[in-house]
Amino acid sequence: MTQPNPTPGVASGDRTGRFVVQPNGHKTPLSPHMGIWRWHVTMAASILFRATLIAASVGLVFIVAWLGALAFGPEAYETALALAGSPLGLFVGFGLTAVLFSFILNGARHTINDTGNGLTIKSATALSNIAVWAPVPLAILFWVVLFAVGRVSL
């Protein structure tokens, strides 16, 4: 699986000296180096989606353990419920909801962008801002309501 290396090319409008001819004949600028890349929220959203999936992989172990505790009967379930109600358990639970909302919102952003929509600078930034920031207030709201209606208590 060897790709032919991009070869340096001369293209009109090459003010950086970094244009290369891709294997398909396109003349494109080299990707900027990490050190000169300007931070933008679309980048944060992209990275956070991967982070969300990694966190979800870890979090799902807790969900499968919850299913297992249920299948092992009332005593095992009581133990699991006590662990989930402990301060550390509630912290993990909050993380799970934040990850879930992040998955839904960032996944929606990803899906919209994959269909070729929402790719103007303005809309891509707006979608990314929602995907990056909204999961936290949503998760807080989720737990505030759970506590308020007495479904969960310390």
Partner: peptide, 26 residues
């Protein structure tokens, strides 16, 4: 793409399920 698209509504359902079952008795 297909899996993610299918998982988005299921994710909303999981959120509502989590709300229903949080702290529920056996």
């Amino acid at each position: 793409r297909v899996l993610l698209t299918a998982l988005l509504p299921l994710g909303l359902w999981v959120a509502s399920t989590g709300f229903t079952l949080a702290g529920a008795a056996y």
